[in-house]
């Protein structure tokens, strides 16, 4: 397994959000994590990435056998974890290109690789921007500075394309996107699909799953995975809501 989560129990300000969650994701797979508002989907993403403010009471999360929960956030990234943020923050004055170069330098250094040649990075970044329908001057703009919601989401995908992580968590990559932008985001994800890479897509809407076909769909409820199934499960949710699919589940 690429990602193994066992009995993960997490509290925020004393309240249990995740309660004994188990999840396995194999290399090469795309999993979708769905669930009603407040079910703890983003909590899972943040805990795996190492954001502060979450108290892990029990359980473990392994990425390629490495114990994620004991690692610093940057070490998790260097181990291949990438989180596409639901609400990416602005970093005024730091250009997208400078940010990418710094991140790549750090990642490559951690892997013992030499820094990427500047010209090669620029070429790759321009190509990725074009693929995502972003304007030519996009790389010179400050990170998320004054970006529209759609631009922010696409910038996350741009970073994902260039940093080439092994395991990607996309936290609502589709919220607030029109159908054209959604297709571009999906194209970015599909481009990176490979046998040695895995994805966890967190979403409210089955819409994006039309464009990125998941291998498994999970429903988070009561702090754990309450129901799992094939891609078809997403359609059932769309047709009947969460109540319909959760009926008779353990939670």
């Amino acid at each position: 397994m690429m990602l193994t989560i066992r009995n993960l129990t997490v509290a925020v300000e004393g309240r249990r959000i995740l309660d004994g969650l188990d999840l396995d994701i194999a290399a090469g797979e795309v999993h979708a994590l769905m669930g009603p508002n407040g079910a703890g989907k983003s909590t899972l993403a943040n805990v795996l990435a190492g954001r502060e403010g979450y108290e892990v009471l029990e359980g473990k999360a392994l990425l390629d056998g490495q114990d994620l929960l004991t690692m610093e956030p940057e070490a998790r990234a260097q181990a291949g974890l990438f989180l596409s943020f639901q609400h990416p923050v602005e970093i005024p004055g730091v250009s997208n290109l400078q940010f990418l170069r710094t991140a790549l330098d750090c990642l490559r250094k951690a892997r013992g690789e030499p820094p990427l040649d500047s010209a090669a990075l620029l070429r790759a970044a321009r190509e990725a921007a074009q693929l995502l329908g972003l304007p030519a001057d996009f790389l010179k703009r400050g990170v998320n500075e004054g970006f529209s919601g759609g631009e922010k989401k696409r910038n996350e995908i741009l970073q994902m394309l260039l940093l080439e992580p092994r395991f990607v968590i996309l936290d609502e990559p589709d919220s607030g996107l029109d159908v054209d932008a959604l297709k571009l985001v999906a194209a970015g994800v599909n481009r990176l699909r490979r046998p040695d890479r895995a994805f966890l897509i967190i979403t409210h809407y089955p819409r994006i799953l039309e464009y990125v076909r998941p291998d498994r769909v999970h429903v988070l409820h009561g702090g754990r995975i309450a129901r799992s199934g094939e891609a078809e499960l997403a359609h059932q949710i769309e047709a009947g809501g969460y109540a319909a699919v959760l009926e008779g589940s353990v939670a």
Binding site: E74, R76, A77, E90, A103, L107
Partner: peptide
């Protein structure tokens, strides 16, 4: 901002 940078592997 710090977390965002660190999530991208930046110390």
């Amino acid at each position: 901002q710090l977390f965002y940078c660190r999530q991208r592997g930046i110390d």
